[in-house]
Design a protein around this nucleic acid. Structure first.
Length: 464
RNA sequence: GGCGCGGUACCCAAGCGGCUAAGGGAGAGGUCUGCAAAACCUCGAUUCGUCGGUUCGAGUCCGACCCGCGCCUCCA
């Protein structure tokens, strides 16, 4: 049984998709006004884990992730640089896709862009006006939350309290109630706008997601994800718009990922603890280590990023990599041991069961590490045979469909002159010319290559 | 003020009513080795922020308190 914590109900629920064997997944994507920071990627990696797990569990997954390419920030950015909105956002969209690849995040099936779905938004806004959920004010259209009594259920906020805590709103737009939100913003001097039946203007942020999610996934989705900060008001507003328009349940399972903080504090540029993926890559960090770090803490728990904790994650991942390396490079005697098959079966089961329990990655990884220890113990006593080794490797690769942390097959080879030096050193060692051997080892170390003499021969590693 | 999260070994982190409190990192000891490095093995909490309570039995439920953090405004 698969269970997820549903923000809407505030409890763990058994997961059952609307259509058997198929999951319609919507995840809030980036607003492309800047390079995403590592906190953004925590959310995307959580969603990647979710998706890969669903795929492993045998579901077909239809995944839509929006790209917000028009909003206050993108408009401001473009105008600051004196370039078109499109020109401005194109650079960040490209960077975003590059980063996804770098972090081995599986691509979504569709990446709808707000600017390419204006008609869908207009259609919804018109419908909301007709049904009385929205009103015009000074050329803009607002959603009236009073007309939607269920407003606040996701975020567990009640309207009375909202009103009581309301302060003078600094929004330049006029509206009936401070908490009503804009569906359509009237065109303003110097800002991009679309000529539509609603008048000249541009969409509000929330309607973008409602229009694009339902456009591709239908009025009811199985899972909708985002960071916890999206719960209110963004997701609350999405529910209001979508359910008011379609008259049916918008989302069955709301999954929200907690924040990443840096050195125990919220990331911010002013605090100087703000990192983009590119910042970290520039420091020589292996992006897959970052992936593993972001992956290895439960998604509903606040994650504290420090360079020390990243280093711990790197070491932890290395244990898995060393294990695979050993299995791939050692020579085994023929045959198999029944015990190994039992261990293989167990790790596969326990790993999946761990993830089935609201993506309990700690439990899943514990199963993997326990497996590694059991097999290593047997390796150290030559109790693993050729067929066993194959099965063990296959199992680890199966789990890596979800983790995606094993090295690429196309690991870059060493240049010939270095290979030649390694050989020369081996020869020197055989001849007990250790002075030469050590000199070569030191020389290669200077060049960033570490040599290790193992029972099975020389192993080399690059140092970052 | 309102809503919410967390406090488990030196660090990270599962467990959320009942077997010896997972797992990883660091550390210590050992195996291997020309040396080194790496790898591997073994060992590390009579105890779960504090104080009360419920229970045959509590990190696990209830209450109070103490710390740390987040959201309530754009935000993953």
């Amino acid at each position: 049984m698969i269970r997820f914590f549903n923000t809407f109900s505030g409890s763990l629920e058994e997961f059952r998709p609307i259509r058997e064997g198929e999951v319609r997944l919507y995840t809030c994507g980036p607003t492309v006004y800047d390079y995403p920071h590592i906190g953004n990627y925590r959310a995307y990696i959580f969603e990647d884990l979710l998706k890969r797990f669903l795929l492993m569990a045998g579901f077909k997954v239809i995944h839509v992730m929006n790209i917000t390419d028009v909003d206050d920030k993108t408009i401001k950015g473009a105008s600051r640089e004196g370039v078109s909105l499109q020109e401005y956002t194109a650079r960040y969209i490209e960077a975003f896709f590059e980063d996804l690849k770098t972090l081995r995040i599986m691509p979504a099936d569709i990446y709808p862009r707000a600017t390419q779905h204006i008609p869908d938004m207009v259609r919804m806004i018109k419908g909301l006006l007709e049904k009385g959920f929205a009103y015009y004010r000074d050329g803009s259209v607002y959603f009236s939350i009073e007309k939607f009594p269920a407003y606040g259920r996701l975020a567990k906020i009640n309207l009375e309290e909202l009103k009581a805590g309301a302060r003078i709103d600094s929004d330049e737009y006029e509206k009936e109630s401070v908490h009503d939100f804009a569906l359509w913003k009237k065109a303003r001097e110097g800002e991009p706008f679309w000529e539509t039946e609603l008048g000249a203007g541009r969409p509000g942020w929330h309607i973008e997601c409602s229009a694009m999610s339902t456009r591709y996934l239908g009025p009811s989705l199985d899972i909708h994800c985002g960071g916890i900060d999206n719960i209110f008001p963004h997701h609350e507003n999405e529910i209001a718009q979508s359910e008011a328009y379609y008259g049916q349940k918008f989302v069955n399972y709301w999954l929200h990922c907690h924040h990443l903080v840096v050195d125990g504090e919220k990331m911010s540029k002013s605090r100087g603890n703000f990192y983009t993926l590119r910042d970290l890559l520039a420091r020589g960090l292996d992006p897959v280590d970052l992936r593993f770090f972001l992956l290895s803490t439960h998604y509903r728990k606040m994650l504290n990023f420090t360079f020390d904790s990243l280093d711990q994650a790197r070491a932890s991942r290395q244990r898995i990599l060393d294990f695979v390396y050993e299995l791939e490079h050692r020579t085994f005697g023929p045959g198999s041991e029944p015990e190994i098959q039992a261990l293989v079966d167990r790790v596969l089961t326990d790993f999946r069961e761990g993830l089935s329990d609201d993506l309990n990655i700690s439990a899943a990884l514990a199963a993997l590490f326990e497996f590694i220890r059991e097999i290593n113990f047997r390796l150290s006593r030559d109790l693993v045979k050729r067929e066993d080794a194959g099965r063990v490797l296959q199992a680890v690769h199966e789990l890596d469909r979800v983790l995606a942390i094993l090295p690429d097959k196309t690991e870059e080879a060493l240049p010939p002159d270095i290979l030649e030096k390694i050989e020369r050193r081996q020869k020197a060692r055989k001849e007990k010319n250790f002075a030469l051997a050590d000199a070569i080892r030191e020389e290669l170390r200077q060049r960033g290559i570490i040599l290790e003499d193992t029972r099975e021969g020389v192993r080399w590693k690059r140092i970052k």
